[in-house]
């Protein structure tokens, strides 16, 4: 195996032109007057859904409305802001909750049978209507992937212009998995006809809260 490594690297070095011609990093030239407005316009254009809330408290109220409208009985929720520490069972007693990292039992099986997954988001990209979710303790990859509905609660202060500004602001280690989600899963592989909800959620609902 190491022979393959050495051989490939040697062959590459033989062909390389060398020198340092790397251009200076490209910086975003997008100028959005209103990040939230652009985010909303792009996300809804991608068949995503958008709800505004003035505060984290109100975001939880809106979350309750959404879950009620869905008739959700089983919901998986990431243990992260603004949901961490909320007594979900007391607030919504009719729902079977799986709080990632706290509730006992098989997370994967629960996600596969859940009606909705609720997560926070580290960032929201205005240009592309994307929210980024990360792995970590209390943060499930599958909560935003397996259930048919993904609800993301995003603080407005997490809005950034685009993936270039996201990359420029990034520092240090990355979590094992970071995913930018831009609307519901989709495909057009059969006769170029759009079908929503191939493998991932069929609905993506973003609750954007705060100023």
């Amino acid at each position: 195996m190491s022979t393959a490594r050495e051989e490939i690297l040697t062959a590459l070095r033989r062909g390389e032109r060398g020198g340092n011609s790397a251009p200076a990093p490209w910086r975003s030239r997008q100028q959005f007057d209103d990040l939230a407005a652009r985010f909303t316009a792009t996300l809804t254009g991608l068949h995503g859904e958008m709800i505004r809330a003035a505060s984290a408290d109100e975001a939880l109220d809106r979350l309750g409305d959404v879950l009620r409208d869905l008739g959700a009985a089983r919901v998986v929720v990431n243990d992260e802001p603004p949901l961490a520490g909320v007594d979900l069972a007391a607030r919504w007693p009719g729902i079977a909750w799986h709080v990632v990292g706290r509730t006992e039992g098989d997370l994967r099986a629960f996600c596969a049978g859940a009606d909705a997954g609720v997560t926070g988001a580290d960032a929201a990209l205005a240009e592309t209507g994307s929210v980024t979710v990360s792995s970590g303790p209390g943060r499930s990859r599958m909560a935003s992937l397996l259930p048919p509905v993904h609800i993301a609660l995003v603080a407005a202060e997490r809005l950034t212009s685009d993936i270039l500004t996201w990359a420029a602001a990034r520092s240090g280690d990355l979590p094992a998995n970071v995913t930018a989600i831009s609307g519901p899963s989709k495909t057009a592989d059969i006769e170029q006809t759009l079908a929503i909800g191939m493998h991932g959620p069929k609905r993506v609902i973003v609750i954007l809260y705060g100023e």
């Binding site: 592309t128 970590g136 943060r139 831009s182 989709k186």
Partner: peptide, 22 residues
């Protein structure tokens, strides 16, 4: 012709200690 594909995933190593899944 999409601004970004629906899912853009950056994977840095396998699941870490304490990760919920992966």
């Amino acid at each position: 012709g999409q601004p970004l594909s629906v899912y853009t995933t950056a994977i840095t190593g396998p699941a870490r200690d304490g990760d919920a899944d992966g």
